[in-house]
């Protein structure tokens, strides 16, 4: 990077500083402003812990399911031709294209006592709305496309040659997937998983609508943060929760950055 670039660099850094840096600094200052013990007692309050626990549990369910579904759908889209493929491909983009609040409302309509799915489920005694199940469902919906979108381009670029070679050598579908396809797309899968995880941890809108915001039962960490601040005027509790969530997201981002570097190196290898 030459000297002439410094004004541009300065502007970009300033912009990032104002947009991202300052808020984070303030967040840290505010959360830890009353000392670490105060921060610690805030985040170890039962409600905060249960929100953290639910967030992790939701991620632990939503991420693996969306990974499996995403990989399967990516293989369908990239390797098979069937009627309705374009529609399927497009449906996967709906969750990112429309506002999470709308997704939440749509889920409420579908799963309420009188909704299409809700009516029969209620008869079987399964409550989706205002329960952790609803939270999982909403989270899964908003984080649906990331694995698929990270894998499909890689699969298309990879081509079918290696898979066909494996087939002539006697390998069946399952073995081809585990020994040939998956190793070739593993970084893309991990990348997609990381994006899914980041989205899952941060989801607010859709979850707020379906969860009914029941403290200690359906409150995830983002909703706990909002609730503390907006409803209970517990400013320190809100900041402390936000700092924990921010650190979790940072950790995910760090993994993502590492993967990006790894992937770029890999691309160079393959070229």
């Amino acid at each position: 990077m030459g000297r002439r670039h410094w004004p541009l660099r300065g502007v970009v850094l300033l912009y990032l500083g104002v947009l991202v840096g300052l808020p984070v600094v303030f967040l840290v200052l505010k959360a830890l402003g009353h000392g670490f013990p105060a921060f610690w007692s805030e985040i170890t309050k039962p409600d905060a812990l249960s929100a953290l626990k639910l967030s992790i549990e939701v991620a632990a369910i939503a991420v693996p399911i969306n990974t499996v579904v995403g990989v399967g759908a990516a293989l369908l889209v990239a390797r098979h031709n069937f009627f309705g493929k374009r529609v399927l491909d497009t449906i996967f983009d709906v969750p990112v294209a429309i506002s999470p609040v709308i997704i939440g409302v749509a889920l409420v309509l579908a799963y309420s006592r009188i909704g299409w799915f809700g009516a029969p489920l209620t008869r079987w005694g399964i409550m989706v709305l205002f329960s952790p199940l609803g939270v999982v469902l909403a989270t899964m919906t908003v984080s649906l496309p990331y694995v698929l979108r990270s894998i499909v381009p890689v699969l298309l670029e990879l081509g079918v040659d290696q898979e066909q070679a494996a087939r002539t050598l006697g390998a069946g579908r399952v073995r081809i997937f585990w020994y040939v396809t998956l190793p070739a797309i593993r970084w893309a899968v991990l990348y997609g998983v990381t994006l899914t995880l980041a989205r899952t941890l941060g989801e607010f809108g859709a979850v707020l609508v379906v969860s009914g915001n029941i403290t200690g039962v359906t409150q995830t960490l983002p909703i706990y943060i909002f609730d503390s601040w907006d409803q209970r005027f517990d400013v320190l509790g809100s900041y402390s929760g936000a700092l924990v969530l921010a650190m979790m997201s940072m950790a995910v981002l760090a993994v993502l950055a590492l993967l990006r570097r790894r992937e770029r190196r890999l691309r160079v290898d393959l070229a």
Binding site: D161, Q162, Q164, A165, P183, D269, L270
Partner: peptide, 9 residues
């Protein structure tokens, strides 16, 4: 194969 199709990994 025309382009050898080695298993790259």
């Amino acid at each position: 194969f025309q382009h050898y199709a080695p298993f790259r990994h």
